[in-house]
Simulated scan of single mutants.
Amino acid sequence: MKSVERTLKNLGLGFFRLFFGSETLASIPERLKNPKRILVVRADARLGNLVFSLPFVAALRKKFPQAEIIFLVSTQFAELLKNESGYEVWTFNKKKARNPLCILDLMRRLSSKQFDWCFDLSSPQSPSFTNSFLAGLSRAAVRIAYQSKFAEAFDNLLFEPEKDSALWEQFLKLLERVSPGKGEFGRVLNLTAEERKNAAEFYGQSSSPKVGVFLGGRGGKKWEAEKWLEVAEMLARWGCSVFLFYGPDEKEMSSTGVPGITPVAPRPIREFSALLSGLDLFASVDSGPLHLASALNVPVLGVYFTSDPVRFLPMGKRKTILTENKAVLNSEQVAEMAMEILEEKPARRPIVGAGLK
């Protein structure tokens, strides 16, 4: 059955190559080296993937201040970008896209822009059919991506994948391939004064360190909620104000009744971001919330079991990653590392990529 599915997929990709195909480019034509309209595509429904794309879009804006930039993202997280002024946000709803009329309407909107460049920000290690397909729909003169089976069907300027660097760095290097010079970026997310004020009111006037602990995660990345609760209880005993962030699956586990621990129910993405920004430390497995906190320049403690700590390294300057087998790592080790981070002097460089042996 799998071999049949694989054959059908390959036939489908062959059709798309014929339909979308254009002459493969070795470089950007001279007449298009100063693009007026640029499309960036990162439309899969993963928060972490979107966050990893933000330094790229910020650097692109700096390199081409006069260009019109449209960022095509999943409807699920578009609200996160509502205060960004350097580009226009368009949304893609994968469920609605099952209706051919929706695809035709999107194709019309994209083609009407007559984009000079399109960046297909698919991960070179985990290529996305959705991203590459949307890049193809744009009919941009130059469609730029890392080499993959999907990019070969829809894009026309391909580069060998980067290795041994974080995903957000790989995207910046893709920009450097077509526009020489280091891709510089500053703040990638902007919270309003009102959002920050509301977060400050939520936390109150306590002078104790505010630590966020995320109980969620996906698949093999996830750590048992009971382990995180043990971490939270230790931190609370040691004088921290601990805030348990959880999803629907962890709701029953979040009510501990332990003094110093406050459960935080799921919030809209902007409110959630503001709450993250008010923390002194955020601890989580490799997850969208971890990378969102790091993008907001919050110190993070990441616990990585199956994730590649190089490829999925958070972008912020203050990050500590623990890499260990689930059977070996215990709650006390994580809690002690959290306290070590909190007690560090500001001038001291935080530990990066630390592993428990």
Rank of each mutant, 00 (worst) to 15 (best):
D164T: 03
D164S: 15
S165A: 13
L167K: 08
W168Y: 15
L175A: 10
L175K: 01
V178C: 11
S179V: 06
E184T: 13
E184W: 01
R187D: 12
V188G: 01
N190Y: 04
N190M: 07
T192C: 06
A193Y: 04
E195H: 07
K197C: 08
N198V: 03
N198I: 01
A199D: 14
A200C: 06
E201A: 14
E201N: 06
Y203A: 01
Y203R: 02
Y203S: 10
G204W: 14
S207E: 15
P209H: 03
K210T: 12
V213K: 12
V213W: 09
F214R: 03
L215P: 00
R218V: 14
G220M: 10
K222Q: 15
A225I: 02
E226Q: 14
E226I: 05
W228Q: 00
W228K: 00
L229G: 05
E230F: 09
E233S: 15
A236Q: 04
C240W: 05
S241L: 06
S241W: 00
V242K: 00
V242I: 12
Y246S: 03
G247E: 07
D249P: 01
E250Q: 05
E250K: 02
K251F: 06
E252W: 00
M253G: 01
S254K: 02
S255D: 13
S255T: 13
S255V: 15
P259H: 05
P263T: 09
P263Q: 08
P266Q: 01
I269S: 00
I269G: 04
R270A: 07
E271V: 13
S273Y: 01
A274G: 09
A274Q: 09
A274K: 00
L276D: 05
G278K: 04
L281A: 06
L281I: 14
F282T: 05
A283F: 02
D286G: 04
D286W: 02
S287Q: 09
S287F: 09
H291V: 08
H291M: 12
S294F: 03
V300D: 10
V300H: 01
V303N: 05
V303Y: 02
F305V: 14
S307F: 07
D308K: 04
V310K: 13
